[in-house]
Amino acid sequence: MRDAFYISAAVAFVSTLMVIIQKKVVHALLYLIISLLSVAVIFFTLGAPFAAALEVIIYAGAIMVLFVFVVMMLNLGAEAARQEKSWMSPRMWIGPSVLAAILLADMLVLLARGPAFISGGNVVGPKHVGMALFGPYLAGVELASMLLLAGLAGAYHLGRRLKKEELAERETRR
């Protein structure tokens, strides 16, 4: 388990790095998927198979597909790459890198202090997750579901088919 953890952590590290330095957007997204998959393996090694499966199903399997879907339709070419290059002036990346460096230092300090992680603890199964979601975290779940419902209604409103009168009205307003 420990070896699997380190291997997948290394994979996650490398692939996340590749996400940042890849020029082609789709390739970057592919590395992001690999990164998510390796994070799922990390969850698994830490004794949370349910979370690992959900990570793959929802993040790698559904959300990233939509990302790929959108990027596929954008048809980004050499022009976009050049434009992006012009944005990468030192002024732009110095702020995020400082913040990331602080995070890195934080993590290094934590690692140096004590036991890095707890492995082989008790397995968190689907039942535990469900109990936790609808027990102590009920308020959070309800809030998130309301947010999602609002998003759903909003998407439906934006994507609905307009009636003829409404279309005409919109034309005149323009």
Binding site: V26, A53, V56, A60, G61, V65, V68, M72
Partner: peptide, 25 residues
């Protein structure tokens, strides 16, 4: 004998989408 067999199937089938989508791209 995975205790999350059903979820494993769903995870794999959701990864299978990439094959078709990226092949098209």
């Amino acid at each position: 004998d995975l205790n999350i067999g059903v979820l494993f199937f769903l995870a794999m089938s959701s990864l299978g989408v990439y094959s078709v989508t990226l092949a098209g791209w």
